[in-house]
Design a protein around this nucleic acid. Structure first.
Length: 962
RNA sequence: GCUCGGAUGGUGGAACUGGUAGACACGCAGGACUUAAAAUCCUGUGCCCUCAACAGGCGUGCGGGUUCGAUUCCCGCUCCGAGUACCA
């Protein structure tokens, strides 16, 4: 304790030294460090931003995507969204809302585990360290988070409820009749009374028909097996992305080009028993829900594409028996999904995926070698290879034929890797006249191409249009597309050959990882079947293990836990939940973060309802944001929450890219680097190579030569060829990363300029949604602005001095312009323009030498959301109680102060601006017309010509047409 | 390939529903203050022509169009960024 205290004082005095040094150096009177420390401490001690769940104020929920606490700490790009959301939260508070603005950590994840593997350090320990560092950095920026509601997904008190939600999913099925999830008990009751024949449910494809009598006769085991086919989370043998190097399974969106997104290791397809989430049950609701939420259109579009709804039909093609030697049954069919049944008479062959289950059956003896070699070749191709040559046509004939149910034509069955096993039925009916891939395939293998529409042009490529009238198409000849569809659907039903069907691209989400640092799945196995542990035993704690690696037998790390058994008898599930588990419901936990009896109380959920504003990156479009909507809908179906959609409005903040600096090193004749460096403007006259240089020793692209020599002692005696006495560095925009020496730590910026400057500067940089490179070139301007603002309240002797005189019209006008502007800008998330307007306002008031209390008081409130520290300080200097600024009232805008009676009309001739004329705004069109035309200065623009027409827009423009 | 964004001075950007393009800031140049520097303040700064002022011409990626008037709307193109990947 004593040691800590001494350390504290030492640090404090060190700070004061740095601080007073800075002050003396710059001679400034705005002591940001002192002010910011003081108020950050005050807010923490005062619990200024603690929020209650019960008030008579309207609620407003502002959420940031919580961070994964990485070892690298925050860089200057991370806080961009947090600053915006903080400004918005503070503004809403000033508008009388009860604002929930929490923060927490998505603290389960791979990097901590990878670090544990390397160092043996428990991930919980490194995670804790990283969180503390993040917290310190966040605190430095003056955010108004209610830290009493902090959540950490890796904390047992939190993952207890993640596990609980998993249990609810396990205990639920999706009823298509009511179009919602329901308790599994209701399904069991149906089985008991009627069997499963009448049950409309989302379930596995291979569910057998079961009568009530069957069900009653089933063993416990068979009953459980059947139920598992209906549960919303279920075990399934699925093709997973297996990454041998990571010893784990990756989700589709974690694999890029056949390699793991993290680490870049090769990924192969492997069959494995996996927990899955039946998100497909919600496809339609996830799609429809997008129409009712205020999200950026590109983001919604991404989700729509991901869900990938297509309306079409299933059509069965009977396999022609003759050719097949070893036919297992008489009624063998190939089922295809098509969005163009209308082209069925143009089918000249079928194509099935190389992995299709019928491939073996359909291959005739004569084609066996060709098919096998093609399959082997397809297997060897990595996804990257397949992507690289989309133009190459490949495939093999099985030797079998199928029969077109509509006209009885025999068509050959081929295999080709352009047909994917995982989509639709893994088989397509090929219509070369209407589909370009089919067309290329037919041309390549010399298969027939049959035109089916009269105006179709298939000379050089397929024509997919639906215009015109059908030909060569039996019953639909002469009909248009619209007329043909009902005829075809009727025919399909009549023939028993198919039915209309809606297909989705989205697949069920795999919900398990062969990893340690994640939520344990609250399941144990008895006779090879999964059972939930008792709810009272939650949380199922993550056990200690000796090493964070898979076991020797290839089991996940949890297999190493000693004596880790349910009731000392049954094996627990050894995989853990994926990264997105904890983040799929966290916004509810913030509502009632400490509740030990529920994930959040009914009252809290009823009060806060949903997130009004969510700010985060668009990279989560098809992961986190889709899973969260899924879990939210599920929780609503069971009555635990009240809203169909969790995030009413969403804003994507752009990425802050790094801005790298280079020095240009002179190269000698042999191509070796020398000890001489050339300034950027002169580099083209020499042979040079560029070397990254730490951006922190560069200011406005000018290199600090001494610091450079210090930074790279190996260049301690470097020589420089300067331009205008300076060494100018080269510049490039790259990812912000340690290896480019372009990482800027917000702590360094706040040490130099303060948090208020950093906050305003990040906003000043440009529109929130836009990605932009970080550079500090303009930060001085924002810093100067704050000092000017401070000066308004102080006299020449740097004493606080405001006057109680009545404000003038000009002063009131300036104030009310900014009151309106900030209001408008914040509501449309245009924070950058507000900062400019604040500068204009302070420039105007400085010009007017305004230090009137009545003006400055309101200005302080208006600026409070952007620069909370300096405004708190001035607010108390103005005589208000400390801490009350956050809950003050945003000043009311009074348009009366902005009324003008004159306007400097731009006068243009033929649309080109020529001059300005001050004209009273009370004049109407004819009066203005005569004022302009009779103005002597204006005559010369007419050049003696007649004014043919005068366009007049009141308060805007006068345009004279000659 | 498809989908969605974007392109404005030396730089970041502004111009909200078609109405004075370049606000605000950085940078740069010049000046004041200072022994000097820092800080601060003042002036100028889209490009071209002009000694300069006045005046003029050009100008929002490129080419057209609609309009009294286009950075803004329409058509075609170029380039950059993001997402997606043979989806039947």
């Amino acid at each position: 304790m004593r040691g800590k205290l001494t350390e504290y004082f030492f640090l404090l005095s060190a700070w004061f030294f740095v601080f007073s040094h800075l002050t003396l150096r710059s001679g400034m009177d705005y002591h940001f460090r002192e002010i910011e420390d003081k108020w950050q401490r005050f807010w923490a001690e005062d619990n200024t931003y603690r929020v209650e769940n019960t008030t008579d104020k309207p609620k407003y929920y502002v959420l940031d995507m919580f961070p994964y606490p990485s070892g690298a700490g925050l860089h200057v790009g991370h806080p961009l969204g947090y600053i915006a959301s903080d400004i918005f939260s503070r503004y809403k508070r000033l508008r009388g809302f009860n604002v929930l603005h929490p923060m927490g950590y998505d603290s389960f994840g791979l990097p901590a585990e990878q670090y544990a593997i390397q160092t043996g350090q428990h991930p919980a320990i490194t995670t804790e360290t990283n969180i503390n560092r993040y917290r310190e950095q966040l605190d430095n920026l003056g955010f108004s988070f209610d830290w009493s509601r902090e959540v950490r997904t890796s904390d047992p008190s939190y993952y207890k409820w993640t596990q609980w939600i998993f249990m609810q999913l396990f205990n639920s099925w999706y009823n298509l009749e009511t179009d919602k999830a329901e308790p599994i008990d209701a399904l069991i009751a149906r089985f008991k009374s009627d069997g499963n024949g009448s049950v409309g449910a989302v379930c596995d494809d291979d569910v057998p028909a079961v009568s009530a009598a069957d069900w009653a006769s089933f063993s416990e085991r068979r009953q459980q097996e059947l139920l598992l086919k209906y549960r919303l989370t279920y075990l399934r043998e699925s093709n997973v992305n297996w990454c041998a190097a990571l010893g784990t399974v990756l989700a589709n969106d974690e694999v890029k080009d056949g390699f793991s997104e993290r680490g870049g290791y090769p990924v192969e397809q492997k069959k494995m028993m996996q927990w899955s989430m039946r998100i497909t049950a919600y496809s339609e609701r996830l799609l429809r829900g997008l129409d009712h939420i205020d999200w950026p259109d590109p983001l919604k579009e991404m989700q729509r594409n991901w869900i990938g709804k297509s309306v079409g039909a299933m059509v069965k093609f009977a396999v022609e028996p003759s050719a097949i030697s070893h036919r297992p049954s008489a009624d063998l069919f190939i089922e295809v999904f098509t969005t163009r049944v209308d082209t069925i008479f143009g089918v000249t062959f079928l194509v099935i995926a190389p992995e299709h289950e019928l491939v073996k059956t359909l291959t005739t003896a004569g084609q066996k070698d060709a098919i096998e070699s093609y399959i082997n070749q397809a297997k060897k191709k990595s996804e990257r290879d397949r992507m690289a040559d989309t133009k190459t046509v490949s495939g093999a004939f099985t030797g079998s034929y199928a029969v077109n149910p509509f006209n009885g034509d025999k068509v050959p069955v081929w295999i080709a890797d352009y047909v994917l096993a995982g989509y639709g039925t893994g088989a397509v009916m090929a219509v070369p006249s209407g589909d370009q891939r089919d067309y290329l395939f037919a041309k390549h293998f010399e298969l027939p191409i049959v035109p089916i529409i009269d105006i179709q042009n298939i000379e050089t490529e397929a024509d997919p249009t639906k215009e015109g009238h059908y030909i060569n198409s039996g019953p639909i000849n002469g009909l248009t597309y619209k007329e043909a569809i009902p005829v075809l659907h009727a025919k399909l039903a009549e023939l028993g050959a198919g039915y209309a069907k809606v297909n989705y691209r989205m697949r069920d989400a795999i919900f398990g990882r062969q990893r340690y640092w994640g939520e344990p799945v609250p399941v144990y196995f008895k006779d090879g079947l999964p059972y939930l542990i008792d709810e009272k035993e939650l949380p199922l704690l993550l056990p200690e293990i000796d090493k964070y690696l898979p076991t020797e037998t290839g089991e996940p790390p949890l297999g190493r836990a000693e004596n880790w058994k349910y009731q000392d008898a049954y094996e627990y599930e050894l995989s853990t939940m994926p990264g997105w588990a904890g983040s799929s419901w966290y916004w509810y936990r913030y509502m009632d973060a400490k509740n030990d009896g529920e994930f959040a109380s009914k009252e809290a959920v009823a009060y806060w309802k949903d997130v009004d504003l969510y700010i985060g990156g668009s990279e989560h479009a098809t992961g986190h944001l889709l899973y969260s909507r899924f879990w939210n809908k599920f929780l609503k179906d069971l009555g635990y929450v009240n809203e169909e959609e969790p995030f009413k409005k969403l804003i994507n903040q752009g990425m802050i890219q790094g801005r790298s600096n280079f020095v240009h090193r002179l190269i000698d004749e042999e191509g070796r680097g020398t000890n001489t460096f050339v300034s950027n403007g002169l580099k083209d006259t020499y042979d040079t190579s560029a070397i990254h240089v730490d951006v922190n020793i560069v200011q406005n692209d000018v290199l600090d030569l001494e610091k450079f020599k210090e930074w790279r002692p190996d260049f301690g005696n470097a020589e420089f060829i300067l331009e205008n006495g300076k060494y100018v560095c080269g510049v490039e925009v790259e990812k912000m990363s340690k290896r480019y020496y372009n990482v800027v730590n917000p702590d360094d910026v706040t040490a130099r300029y303060g948090a208020d400057t950093l906050r305003m500067y990040e906003m000043f940089l440009g529109p929130l949604e836009q990605s932009k490179p970080w550079n500090t070139n303009g930060i001085e301007g924002v810093f100067k602005f704050l000092r000017k603002f401070w000066k308004l309240f102080h006299n020449d002797k740097l004493e606080f001095s405001v006057s109680d005189e009545e404000p003038t019209g000009a002063e009131l006008k300036s104030l009310h312009k900014i009151i309106r502007k900030v209001e408008e800008d914040i509501e449309r998330f245009s924070f950058n323009t507000s900062v400019s307007s604040f500068m204009i306002c302070v420039n105007e008031l400085t010009e007017l030498k305004c230090n009137k209390r009545k003006i400055l008081r309101d200005l302080v409130v208006t600026l409070a959301a952007y620069a909370p520290h300096i405004t708190e300080e001035l607010w108390t200097l103005l005589g208000n109680a400390p801490g009350t600024l956050s809950y003050a009232q945003y000043p009311a805008f009074n348009p009366a102060y902005l009324v003008e009676n004159e306007f400097a009309y731009p006068i243009s001739v033929n649309g080109k601006m020529k001059m300005n004329l001050n004209i009273s705004l009370s004049l109407d069109e004819t009066e203005v017309r005569s004022v302009v035309l009779s103005n002597p200065d204006f005559q010369k623009y007419l050049e003696g010509k007649e004014a043919r027409k005068v366009i007049f827009v009141k308060g805007k423009i006068v345009n004279v047409v000659v």
